[in-house]
Design a protein around this nucleic acid. Sequence first.
DNA 1: TTGTAAGCGTTATCAG
DNA 2: CTGATAACGCTTACAA
Lengths: 348, 348
Amino acid sequence: MFPSPSVAMPDDAGAQGAATRMRDVAQRAGVSPMTVSRALRDPSKVSPAVLRRVEEAVRAVGYVPNRLAGGLSSMRTNVVGMVVPSLDNSLYSPTIQGVSAVLHAAGYQLMIGECGHSPQGEEALVAAFLAQRVAGLMLHGVHHTEAAAAMLRRAGIPVVETGSLSAKPLDMVVSYSNEAAAQAMTLHLHRLGYRRIACVTLPSAGNERSRDRQRGYRAALASVGLEADPALLMEMPPGLASGAEAVVRLLQSPAPPDAVFFAGDVLAAGALFECQRRGWAVPARVALAAFDDIDILRHVVPPVSTLRLPRAEIGRRGAEVLLDRIEGRAAGTVAVDLGFEIVQRGST
Amino acid sequence: MFPSPSVAMPDDAGAQGAATRMRDVAQRAGVSPMTVSRALRDPSKVSPAVLRRVEEAVRAVGYVPNRLAGGLSSMRTNVVGMVVPSLDNSLYSPTIQGVSAVLHAAGYQLMIGECGHSPQGEEALVAAFLAQRVAGLMLHGVHHTEAAAAMLRRAGIPVVETGSLSAKPLDMVVSYSNEAAAQAMTLHLHRLGYRRIACVTLPSAGNERSRDRQRGYRAALASVGLEADPALLMEMPPGLASGAEAVVRLLQSPAPPDAVFFAGDVLAAGALFECQRRGWAVPARVALAAFDDIDILRHVVPPVSTLRLPRAEIGRRGAEVLLDRIEGRAAGTVAVDLGFEIVQRGST
DNA sequence: TTGTAAGCGTTATCAG
DNA sequence: CTGATAACGCTTACAA
């Protein structure tokens, strides 16, 4: 049985609406739908001649498989969900790209959702992802609602958290230690000779990472016998303007610091620009250090000392351990500490 | 018939694996699955008593609907796909957030894919999204492969392009005019008295937006009778370092410009930092203008003149017109020009 | 207001 | 290597 010769076959030109099904491809190729399914998923399972006919038919009718049906039937999908606090902040993009690269190479799709730094937002996204029956989930937050945790537990899919190492993990964790990093930078400043070291973090309310960094800062001071002056520990919202405001407030205080460690976002860059505007010499009048190796810090004058965090590597390794579990290559849970590096530049 | 009283009912504690189905909820609530379906999608269609029982059962078993099944059955999903060239670049995030906000408010999910500035990457993502039977698609690129265009045509779902106004649209467009914006900024520089105006864009190969901006620049020069010196039109890859390199090359050339218009990415910021390093006064020695109102340009010294583009509004309006079509409130295609503004600052 | 029956388009399973 | 058949979990259409 052959399909009628392609006489007066409009192929697909302006066809619109009803999607073609596997059955249409099968008919045209003169085989059963099951054979089409096999040809598409594992070409080695059908004869070369049939494979050719199927491929031709797929092209001719412009067949796009229906993964809703496929997923329903096989009880598995090739979609991985990822929840990030925000997309404004280019901090998360290296991680996203790492995840994306590994996933695509393995034939998976990435679905990203933005939860706006709120556990409720995260819960809603987790529910939505679970409803799509994602094969696994990457979470940046480490603070979850009880409901979200319960859903995740019941769903029984692999989950990787990437935001912090200190939290009691839901399942797997791939990250670096916020506390150790903050401690290391504070000690570095001390080693360079600074003795009144201020620290500015993002608001710690509901932000485990900020709290970890504050803890690291305090631990460092304690270990070298410096007093932890509460006036030297500030919290500011994200943004360049916040960094500017913070440095002004600190330097105009009765007992100004000789170094400021900005443990988050682009605060350090904002502070540097403010120093440029006011003619405050960096690092002579005040040394400035940052937390993340964003491109800009390398290009400003003077370039800003900072921590290099393994953002992209976190994404890659996270996706890898997730895939290992999804595809059954590994079973247990893992916790990976990817470390960090101090980058010493002109600002300190 | 009532479910057995919750004696020795472990509820969900550590249950894991087999997801609960609508049938389980129905059984527990003592109704048919159809009633559960109704209760979940339109509570007004079931009696209050039943509704309460269903809600309780849903909670008790931790039911998460299976949208693969729902979508397959109803032939529609609540997922919208979005393809962006890159996620490094925070330029796209306002648009993504605009889309995300409107979609979530309407109960839709956003699925984001990164195509790496390549039409082939876009094609792959379009295929993947279509396979998930997304309800609609947002595309930033305006240059598509023939195959991608054909798939989109056949799928018959609404598509919004947001990258540029000039392209012959696939379906709907919501954007601003890259050409008009570049022209306006060039004219603005001329009006301020600059007479040798250079322009630096991203590589134009395969980038319609860069070509549009170059066209606008040339049109502006022509309209005021300035010669278009080819030495003053450069193309550079994205990044702060590129901007630095460009300004050095231009200013050290035999006939240096008195103003440089950086029509893309963070080039202008990179150039400004280089000027700071070299002690080149801005704007006295050279004026600098940028294309996009990124936060940093407002905070550097001097602040950089630029164009304010309706990035977030593009996302919101784009999502709105997409939803109008998805939900059948509108039929035809639309093209929306959201305009732009010139922001004059100290760098010019 | 509620329930029954018949798919939706795939894939798992088992026969040939 | 290929095909028939029965799910997968939900919704549409109709009936009660």
